[in-house]
């Protein structure tokens, strides 16, 4: 493997990791309080939301194996956005028709997108509830970044593994399997690093916690670089 393709591999993995880590900051993660409808967002942790959307993105990205890198990344983005949209929509159905609350943000008094008042609809003593429009849009942007990032990592590892001599004597599907599991691993490393950075819960790009994104991106970039070095050790080529 030439030096230039190694550099491209590292750039793809780091760019993908940064997209994943940055994307997580957009996703409305509510955690345990949201599961009781006392905080805005989907009622589960970052790891679960990222797993749901990210793994769907990886499946759609893998369906584009062999295509150009931007097609793989786009396919990943579409899959992740669909899954995240469905998750937030169904969560809203449960919150609205099951729990009986109105989606309302606590971090913005007026929804930046619909310009609707939020404060009068917020139950006193809660941190908002449901998934209001601004959180929904933010979540879709986050899934776009996360899915595209996962797709980029998959593309990089898959094209590297297919060309590697390490896999010359083994089953042809091993390259795709290896690329899939390594990109899942890198996906989780970056999404949990981002999740540590936001301290568990965030509403979306209008949340004050969103200002922490530079640190999260730096953390993701460093961890992706470390992972990329070990991917090179795994598949050889220096």
């Amino acid at each position: 493997m030439e030096l230039i393709s190694l550099i491209i591999l590292v750039i793809f993995i780091v760019a993908g990791g940064v997209c994943i880590g940055g994307g997580v900051h957009f996703i409305p993660v509510g955690g345990a309080p949201a599961a009781m409808s006392t905080a805005t967002g989907v009622g589960t942790g970052t790891a679960m939301l990222a797993a749901g959307a990210g793994l769907t993105g990886l499946i759609t990205a893998a369906s584009m194996t062999g295509q150009a890198w931007y097609l793989v990344a786009l396919a990943g983005a579409v899959g992740a956005m669909l899954m995240m949209g469905i998750t937030m929509l169904i969560a809203n159905f449960v919150y609205i028709f099951g729990v009986g609350i109105v989606p309302a943000s606590s971090k913005a008094s007026i929804d930046p997108i619909t310009k609707l008042d939020q404060d009068p609809y917020k139950t006193p003593g809660t941190e908002g509830h449901g998934v209001p429009t601004v959180c929904f849009v933010s979540g879709i942007i986050g899934a776009l970044l996360g899915g595209a990032g996962g797709g980029l990592v998959y593309y990089a590892v898959d094209s590297f593994a297919s060309a590697s001599t390490v896999l010359s004597g083994v089953d042809a599907t091993a390259a795709a399997g290896l690329a899939a599991i390594v990109s899942v691993g890198i996906f989780f490393i970056n999404s949990v690093a981002a999740s540590y950075n936001i301290g568990g819960t965030i509403e979306g790009f209008h949340d004050p916690k969103f200002k922490r994104i530079p640190k999260g991106i730096l953390a993701s970039a460093i961890m992706s670089l470390v992972a990329a070095i070990f991917v090179i050790l795994m598949l050889g080529g220096i």
């Binding site: 345990a32 790891a47 989780f188 490393i189 999740s195 991917v231 795994m234």
Partner: peptide, 21 residues
Amino acid sequence: GTGVPSIGYMSLGIATVGSIA
């Protein structure tokens, strides 16, 4: 702050990359 499972998923991610490498 992120739930117990998060560190588990992350560690397994690290472990798959490291052990296959």
